[in-house]
Design a protein around this nucleic acid. Structure first.
Lengths: 193, 193, 193, 193
DNA sequence: GGCTAATCGAGACGGTACGTCCCGTCTTTAG
DNA sequence: CTAAAGACGGGACGTACCGTCTCGATTAGCC
């Protein structure tokens, strides 16, 4: 009854080879040095096998992101009971990574990919935005009355992540107390003693 | 005694032709469709004339940004005396522009250029960050005691601009009351009745 | 005792579909535009079905030639009793066909195929050379004493056919009286009053 | 007054590098193994430099032929005073070369190129046809009354060369006395004691 | 009737070469 | 010495086919 397709089926091995090669080269050389030809060579795969399933190099990157091959295991915010402190140390950790050249250039590459390709952008939102671990921490804080129930959680997350992105793009140096000021600026209003 | 140079000096006409051509093509086709060859043709200029004075296409874009050829005349926040209201309407205006395809893709192209080239990024900070008109409005609000004197102005500006950038990159739809919630999230703490 | 095979035997339908598709595409587009993939599609046959039975596209063409699908029904020389006249009008007919673009390009394609593949070349010899209808006419002329018994028939046929091939390859225009001069040049010696 | 073009002029060095590389690869590997990419690599030249000046690989071959880089110094017929003998030994020499695999495959490659590209074909005619050294020998024979004045020289040359081509394409073995029979078949009529 | 093996269509696979676009450098002529 | 024009060596693009392989369905002979 069902619709049957004849012929060979997509090779999962080839698919993963391509994605791993993409991730490897992306991390090594960055987004704009990434080439489809290079990925094909690294993955020992025909170029056509890439173009058959992905429309462009940015689609490759989006898919890698989806498979979790690009971002290191998310930064998990601590839970000391004090949301302000936890967000501060979360920001510190991130600024730490973005302070290193490799961390910075990985982020810039991701942003370049996101600027070029909507799927990468949306994927990035999924990783860093409302559905992220940070969001979960905020919801927990609301639960435990550490945050006011009417706090605009999405906007707060976006403001924090957006600041990181803006600072990365604008190559801002990290000054002392940045995390503290930022956390207080955005969260201060909504924290309960 | 002094160092004399023979021959004609740099042609200002050629310089502006190049920058205008860059701006035109950037706006029309976006950053990654922009090519040095295309700019040279559009400006009716030899390629070498471009490479003599600029190091890459991203340097061209950075220079255009500096000359104010890319961003439409800055959004000037109103001054009704109520900073919260003024920031809200400023955000509304911006979200309006970013809601249109042309505004969105101009912004995405700028972000792509900034991700690729530090000068563009720093230039972007100069246009949108601490030295921006929005910052000036905040300082005025502090002056008039509409904002607390200890408000972390830079962080606030970064949070607002960063949110815009994050939402653009992640292709977020603009929902009603976004501006209101965002302004309150970030400014609430620091506004004085 | 004998070697037995199980399973279905070669499909004659598929075989003819392939050969007809080859002949059609060969005539339409010429030899070097001919592709195995195109033949498979035109014949609605899997590529493997072609590769199972033929080793290359030139083998396909050789087979078509063998089946008589490429050359239009051979040019049959008249028999007026005067071999010189008959050869002349045979040459006229052929030069006529080779004068038209379609005839010329069919011939050129055949020559390309023959240059690439020995089987095609040998097949061409079988069609045009010693075993051809022209040869038969010569033998008849010898029989009826219209040609000397010691006439080197093979060399004469080769000289006539070879001239046609050379003129085709070199894109020579056909001038008036060519047939007459050629027939006399090659045959004159051997004709008997 | 005259039309001046600015800018660099075609590089003669690059031109000759390309042609020599083409000739080398053509002789080594034959026409259908010849690739534009391979020529570019061998000549250490950008592909675009080839495509800028030649339309296809067959145009490269035609140009090589024109520059005399493909055919070994023409076979020069002897002049013993007896045209029949001289043509015979000329044919022997050629059949000798075409008997060797390398000579045969060079010829087949040339024929393939000629079948594909009219310029190659016309060039081949210039090298082997009416303007050839063989033709000159025939004219000398007419001069010295060794050949009848009304002998159709062009047709005779074409018949001889055409036979060689046909025999090459059809992979005919060379039998003893072929040259003799062929020379007599085509020339017999016109030779004077 | 069930089993085995070869056929068929379709088409994914690793590759090679295509012809084009653009890079950044170099070369030429004009002013 | 600058400028335009544009040829140069090079690298990547996205496409077309190559010849091999894998898949599910079908079909012919054998037990």
């Amino acid at each position: 009854m069902s619709e049957h397709r004849q012929g060979p089926v997509r090779s999962e091995a080839a698919r993963m080879d391509v994605l791993h090669a993409t991730a490897r080269l992306f991390a090594e050389r960055g987004y704009d040095q990434l080439t489809v030809e290079g990925v094909a060579a690294e993955a020992r795969v025909g170029k056509q096998t890439i173009y058959r399933w992905w429309s462009s190099k940015s689609a490759l990157v989006a898919d890698c992101l989806l498979e979790g091959l690009l971002l290191p295991g998310s930064f998990i915010p601590r839970d000391t009971g004090d949301i302000l402190v936890d967000v501060q140390s979360w920001l510190d950790e991130i600024f730490q990574v973005l302070g290193e050249p490799s961390g910075q250039s990985l982020m810039l590459s991701l942003l370049a990919a996101a600027a070029e390709n909507g799927d990468v952008g949306r994927q990035l939102r999924a990783s860093l935005g409302a559905s992220s671990i940070l969001s979960a921490r905020f919801r927990a804080a609301v639960e435990s009355s550490n945050l006011r129930a009417d706090a605009p959680l999405d906007e707060i997350v976006q403001a924090l992540v957006g600041t990181m992105i803006f600072r990365t793009l604008s190559r801002s140096e990290i000054e002392p107390h940045t995390s503290e000021r930022l956390a207080r600026a955005v969260l201060g209003e909504w924290v309960r003693a």
